[in-house]
Simulated assay, not measured.
Amino acid sequence: MNDGFRRGDIISYPYLWQWQVEENPDREHGEKDRPVCMILTITDKQGLTHLLLLPISSKPPFEGQDAIEIPGLELRRAKLAGYERGWITVSECNYDVLERSYYLAYGQKPVGRFSNAFLEKVRQAFAPFLAAGSAKVNRT
């Protein structure tokens, strides 16, 4: 696996939405690979890298979903050039462990990265949802 991931990196990942799990609790796979942002990366005492991943979409959030619109400069930094507009969802995330993941492609490199200033805005918006613990889809 790639041990060079860090907070703010954008990668491709088969994100599993919370609504998909609610429709089918046995579901294990997202519909497609999509860009996600690594909002948190923590290495534990065993050397395992725990990841929290926020989905990025070219479509506005739907009812009941909280997202931040991504400014044009950040879309370019993230190498999301095909997006006229983009949103990063902050009301849910996927949790995965890098070294044990079935979903991260071996040797995958980040495609881009958000700035620290934008990441701080995302982190502040995400923090209440993380603290509530209600919208974390466990992919381990």
Score class of each variant (00 low, 15 high):
R113M: 06
D26I: 01
P60S: 15
E84D: 15
I42P: 00
L80I: 01
E99R: 06
Q46H: 05
K121S: 14
L16I: 03
G107L: 00
I70V: 12
T49H: 15
G4A: 14
Q124P: 05
P35G: 00
E23G: 00
D66F: 02
L48K: 01
E99L: 04
F114T: 05
D44M: 05
R7I: 12
E74C: 11
D26V: 00
A132Q: 08
Y95H: 07
G64F: 11
P35N: 01
D96H: 12
V111N: 00
F126Y: 13
A125P: 04
A81E: 14
D96P: 13
L52Q: 05
L54Q: 09
S91T: 02
Q65A: 09
S58A: 12
V36K: 04
I56C: 13
T43E: 13
K121C: 09
L130K: 02
V137A: 04
T89A: 04
L51C: 09
Y102Q: 15
P110M: 09
W19R: 03
R123Q: 14
Y13R: 09
F62G: 13
W17T: 00
R27T: 07
F5P: 00
R27S: 09
E74I: 13
D44A: 06
N2M: 09
Q18V: 07
S91Y: 04
E84L: 09
I88Y: 06
G86N: 11
P35A: 00
E74S: 11
P110Y: 09
I56A: 10
P25V: 10
H29N: 08
K45G: 02
R27Y: 04
A117R: 02
R6K: 15
G112Y: 13
G86H: 07
T41F: 03
N138M: 14
E23W: 06
N116L: 07
V122T: 10
I39E: 08
F62K: 12
L54V: 10
E92T: 08
F114V: 01
A125D: 08
C37W: 01
N138E: 15
L75D: 03
Q65N: 15
R27H: 06
I68Y: 10
E74N: 10
L51D: 14
W17P: 00
G4L: 10
F129V: 01
A127G: 03
Q46P: 01
I10D: 11
Y103L: 09
